[in-house]
Every structure is written in structure tokens, then in C-alpha cells.
Simulated scan of single mutants.
Amino acid sequence: MQYDPIKRSLGKVFNQTPALRIFFYRLLDLLLLRAWYIRRELRRVARQNQKEMQVLDAGSGFGQYVYYMSSLGKQWTIKGVDVKEEQIADCNQFFEKIKRHNRVVFEYADLTKFVNTEAYDLILSVDVMEHILEDELVFANFYQSMKKDATLIISTPSDMGGSDTHHHHEDEGVHGFIDEHVRDGYNAEDIRKKLTKAGFRNIRTSYTYGKAGNISWRLSMKFPIKALNTTKLFFIALPFYYLVTYPIAFVLNWIDISTRHSKGTGLMVVAQK
């Protein structure tokens, strides 16, 4: 299943005015459980660092987390990098319209080649590493690009069904809800070893999307996206669908983020240089 065309369609709908786009960001922040976890980690960083900070969003996509960080840290200078040229141009235009372009910029970058030596106090990477085969090279580049004591935050699917993959016959490979992934997800021990090899310390891994979060994800993301893949007419029904399901998803998200999980389909990783 292709996830990107749906994101693009929604993006076009909400990109007509800056106010609509900000509304869309806020909807995503409420809807996506991963955003709850990421915002919590970013608030921790903000509490510990009241000073000016240089931040990299490695795989910035639609700019959701750059917007949140630019609101959270008024003294933060943020660079968003991505491989999708149209998203870079689009994000630069939006941040110019909302008058934040003096401290927010988006550029094209291939993370396997991108190094900006000792430049950043914080690197955020959300749902990116599962798309990159040469992950150890990227971790080494992150390390090189960070200042001493800087923080790295990674959110990625785990290998416990995070890509919602299911194996078919050998000649067909792996297929799942999200087809663009090069690996099913990360094992907590595996990513810890790779980050340690790159030089990181104080590595903290925690599973996200436990039982409650998984049900919430199916309700708030999987079912509606499957329906939109079937027919674009579901766009009309979408507000009514969420009116019924979102209160349930909200409670499930709250249960998930308030609980420690021994396993889950998502993984949050925080590390220091």
C-alpha cells in the first residue's frame, strides 16, 4: 500500500492558506501517537536548554515537527533536510509566509552523504531510518554533525510489526501497509549497538505503540487510509468518521504514552554525543 499519495492529497487540501496548514499540523499532532512521544522528548530538551540552539530535522517531510520546534524554541535555528525537492520548496514558502524564514530553512540532502561538522545541538529523525539501507553510515554522519553533549532523537517502527508487514512467497518479498520501507523495523538492541558503534552514549530506547496505541493506530490511520486508497469519496465522510472514532483514539493514545511497554510496534531512541 502506498502511503505517500494520500499524504500528498491531504497536503494539497490543507495547503491553500497558512492558517489551514497550521490547523492540519495541529490535527496531526493530536491524531498521530508518534507525535505525542516526539513532542514529549522535545519538551524535555527545551526545558534543559534555554539558550540558542542549532537544530536539524533529518527527513523533515511536510514540516510538521519543524513548525512545532520553531514554536517551542523561539531561539532555535532549524534546518529541515529531505530528498523530496517539492516538499523543500513548499516548506520554504510556508515558513516565509508565516515570517519564520529568518530562523528556519529547508534544503535537499541525502543523509548518507550529509555532514555538517559539529554544527547541531539537536538532531531529530522521525520515520526516516527504516527507509535507508546504509543506516550505520547515517548514524556516523549524525554523530559527526553534532556538538559535544548534543541530543539525537529517533522515532522509527520496531521489528515487532511496526511496518505492518507480512511475508509472502520468497519471490514476492515483503509487503505491508507501508511499502516504501527497506527493513521491517528496528530491534531495540540492534539500534543501540549501531549507535554505540557510531560513538553515541546514554542511549535510551523505549517501545511505543503498545496494545492501546496499536488499536488507536488502526482506528485513526490504517482504516481511513485503506478507505481513501479504495475511493477518494471517503474524503467527504472523513470528518464524520473522526468525530466518532477520535475520542476513543485520544483515550487510547493517552493510555499508551502513560505506560511503559515491554514490546510495541514503535521505537523511540534518545542518545547523546
Rank of each mutant, 00 (worst) to 15 (best):
Q2P: 10
Y3G: 01
K7L: 15
K7A: 12
K7N: 13
V13T: 02
V13S: 01
V13F: 07
A19E: 09
R21F: 05
F23V: 00
F24P: 02
R26L: 09
L28D: 08
L30C: 04
W36L: 04
R40S: 14
E41P: 02
E41R: 10
R44A: 14
V45F: 15
R47L: 15
K51I: 13
Q54K: 15
Q54V: 11
A58R: 04
G59A: 08
Q64A: 14
Y65N: 10
Y65H: 12
V66S: 13
M69N: 05
S70G: 03
K74F: 05
K74R: 13
T77E: 14
T77P: 02
I78F: 10
G80L: 01
Q87I: 04
I88V: 06
I88F: 08
A89F: 06
C91I: 00
N92S: 10
N92V: 00
K99S: 14
N102W: 08
N102H: 15
R103A: 12
V104F: 10
F106L: 10
A109N: 03
D110W: 01
L111T: 04
F114D: 11
F114K: 06
N116K: 14
N116R: 13
L122S: 08
L122R: 04
I123G: 11
I123E: 09
D127C: 03
V128G: 05
I132Q: 07
L133P: 00
D135A: 00
D135T: 00
L137N: 03
L137A: 04
L137H: 00
V138W: 01
V138L: 00
F142K: 02
Y143I: 00
Y143Q: 07
S145T: 01
K147T: 05
K147V: 06
K148R: 09
A150K: 03
I153L: 03
I153R: 05
I153T: 05
I154C: 06
S155A: 08
S155P: 01
P157K: 06
S158C: 06
S158G: 06
S158H: 07
G161A: 02
H167W: 11
H168S: 08
E170K: 13
E172R: 07
E172N: 08
G173W: 01
V174S: 09
I178G: 10
D179Q: 09
V182A: 11
D190N: 14
K193D: 12
A198N: 10
R201P: 00
R204S: 11
S206L: 02
T208P: 04
K211Q: 07
K211M: 09
A212G: 01
A212L: 00
I215S: 02
R218F: 09
K222T: 08
F223E: 07
F223D: 02
F223A: 11
K226R: 13
L233V: 07
F235A: 14
I236R: 14
A237M: 15
L238C: 14
L238D: 12
L243V: 02
P247K: 03
F250T: 13
V251S: 10
V251C: 13
N253T: 13
W254I: 13
I255C: 06
D256W: 13
S258E: 05
R260K: 14
H261A: 01
G266S: 09
G266C: 01
L267T: 11
V270T: 15
Q272W: 11
Q272R: 14
